[in-house]
Amino acid sequence: MNAANEHFRRYGYNKTTVADLARAIGLSTAYIYKFFESKQAIGEAVSAAALGRIIAELQKIVVQKKSAAERLRAIYQRLTRESAALFFNERKLHEIVITACSEAWRPISDYEEAMLGLIRELVAEGREKGEFERKTPIEETCRAILQTMELCWSPRLLERHLDDLEERAAVMANLVLRSLAP
């Protein structure tokens, strides 16, 4: 995994072969295939790790002792910053995430499910404490919020809106929070 991560960061997913990875760690290509069924499986593992780091950062926000509204706003901000950092600082990893999105790899659906879980936790808590409305079914509310967050993390949308990404995320967070008001 370390060799794959390093090669993908340096050369990109599309320019790296399983043979390149095998050479980098001094093993045969056949041996690599004992652990991963394909180059895509290796790419999925690298994508999952990169996206997992973002989820871990968002989880830190969810457990803070602030209002649900403050934490939801902070999630928009952190998600935007972490995704932009991946784009700017880890350009080749960003390209893997683009491939993962385009080809509907499992780590993308896992990432969305993890974000949905964080959103669900905040919305449920916000409703319980009277911060958020209770009329709309919680699943509908959470899925709608998740869709608005796509602007903050989707690789293709990031590329199109880098110049005002944080402002767009703030506007979206404001809209969502107004709609959640009791």
Rank of each mutant, 00 (worst) to 15 (best):
H94P: 00
G26A: 04
T99A: 12
G43W: 12
A49R: 11
I75A: 09
P137S: 01
R53V: 05
A69T: 13
E95S: 15
A181F: 09
S47E: 05
K34M: 07
R71F: 01
Q77R: 11
H7N: 09
Y31R: 13
Q64Y: 03
I119M: 08
A50D: 10
A170C: 05
F35W: 12
D20E: 13
G43V: 09
A22V: 07
P182M: 02
V171L: 12
E140W: 14
A4I: 05
D20L: 08
I55D: 00
R91E: 03
L146F: 01
A19N: 07
P107F: 04
E121D: 14
L27A: 15
K66E: 15
K34S: 04
Q59H: 11
D20M: 14
A124M: 10
C142D: 06
R168A: 11
R81E: 11
A30C: 05
A124W: 09
V62A: 09
F35Q: 11
I138A: 02
E95N: 14
R81C: 02
A30E: 15
F88C: 05
W153S: 01
S38T: 08
E44L: 01
R10N: 13
E159A: 08
A24E: 13
A19P: 00
N89R: 12
H161R: 08
K65D: 14
S154C: 10
Y111K: 02
A74M: 05
